[in-house]
Structures are given as C-alpha cells and as structure tokens.
Design a protein around this nucleic acid. Sequence first.
DNA 1: CGCGTATATAATCGCAACATCATAGATGAC
DNA 2: GTCATCTATGATGTTGCGATTATATACGCG
Lengths: 124, 124
Amino acid sequence: MMLRLYTRGVIVLPMDVFEAVAEPTRRSVLDLLARSERSAGELVAAFPGLTQPAVSRHLRILRESQLVDVRPDGTRRVYSLRPAALAELDRWLDTYRRFWGERLDDLERHLDSRTRRTGAEEAK
Amino acid sequence: MMLRLYTRGVIVLPMDVFEAVAEPTRRSVLDLLARSERSAGELVAAFPGLTQPAVSRHLRILRESQLVDVRPDGTRRVYSLRPAALAELDRWLDTYRRFWGERLDDLERHLDSRTRRTGAEEAK
DNA sequence: CGCGTATATAATCGCAACATCATAGATGAC
DNA sequence: GTCATCTATGATGTTGCGATTATATACGCG
C-alpha cells in the first residue's frame, strides 16, 4: 500500500519538510494558515503575483510534506495547518539550541501565555 | 560598503538560512560542526561521495548564510558552527509552537535551568 | 626561489524546481 | 441533463542548484 507522493526523478519519496519550508511562498501560506484555515481560492487571492495553478502546486507540496490538511467543503477545499511536521524541524533545532541559549528567554516569556493542551491527537 | 554575497540571478543577496539548511549535505556539515570544529579537508573526507569542490561550495553557502565561521590555520581553514543564524529559524518556528504544545513541556523542563531576563525586543 | 599541499573558484553540464497556459475533474445550481 | 465555479493536473519553458573537471590562489617547507 504505497502512498503516492511527490516524484523526485524516478523514485517516489515523501517531500521533506526542509525543502517545503525553503520556499518563501510556502512559508507565507503557512503563516496565513496559522491565523485561520482558508480555502484554496482564498489562498490564491492572497498571492496576486501568482497564478492559480502555481499556488495549487505549492499546496500540493505542503500536503505531501504533511504540513497542511485539506477538508472538502462543497466545491471548495479548505486548508488548515498541521504542525506536527514542523515539530520535526523543531526537533532538529534541539541539537543546536545549547549553542545560543539566550533565546530561551523569549520562549520562557512565550510560555507564560500558557496554552497548555495535554490531550493531543497525534498522526503517527 | 556592500558585502559581496551569493549572486542569485543578477542581484546580490544574502543567502537565506532556509535554503541553506534545505540541503541534506549542508545539514550534515552542521551536525559535524556541532560536535567539533573541523578543517575543510576533514569535512571533505567526511563525504566520500562528493568531490572537494562540491564540499567547498557547500561551505561557501554556509558561510554566506552566516551559519559557520572560518578561521585560517596555516594553510587550512577551520570551520566552526555559528548558530545565531539558526536562531532565526527558531524565531520563525515560534509562531507555530502554540500549535503542538506538547513540545512546550520539554522546553519548559529545559527552562527550569533558568536564564531569567525580562527584557524584550520584538520584531514586527 | 620552486614544489607540494590545502582550499577556493571558473567553466560547464544535467536535472529538478517553479512558473506559465490549457485542460480536466468535481460539485452545485438550474 | 447543461452551465458555471472551484480546484487540480498535464505539458512545456526558463532558470538555478548542485555536481563535475580543470585551474587558480595561498601557505609552508626545503
């Protein structure tokens, strides 16, 4: 039961998160989705410099890298953030955190607005 | 006094961190440097699948994205990690941290060895 | 100085990323 | 059903990344 994913060359691989977020447009999409979920059309409208197929392709890559979720709503497809994949990035950064440490202050401040959420739906 | 940086097309821009870490080889270099500083030659030796110029170009990109430092030592050039640039990535992730929350527990635990400081500078 | 070693750059090439335009598929309204 | 709308995909072109080989530059040594 092999997932059909992004074809890189001949072989079928999962799109990796690092590549996905390397693209400025895709980071912008994630920023928008962090505020609220949006339909594909709304996202297209958010990028006047790009055509609809261009945005659609970016959405595909974000889907394949597990960074977003899609929910059909009539003829629309509503995209929402799926941050588990970003946690992978965060985990990678963990290795380096001990090198700067000062930034932990910001995180601490951030934690004061405690968004505790012990229940968690985790996709693998 | 404009820094000469990486030429992208015609315009000269700083290499951005997201692109720099998107490359698996470059991430491996960072991982090696996180353990200890190494000369260019040692780094070349660490990648038997690549030629010396290939590694050298990766090092250039890491230099231009401020992710590494170089110190001449005789005829060698010794590379070391400069994690400030990674902090930029970390800052970007801050926006999304509230979405996965479980990891906040880890950070919080981490913070118990606190580095208190109340000052705050906020970008944007 | 010339020679060897270490590293960076130049020129070139292949391939993959990202854009476009055109078209297909799916859904809702009539 | 037909038609309009929303979204995804196919075909294709340009551009830029990352690789190579060959060459240049810098340093140390005799």
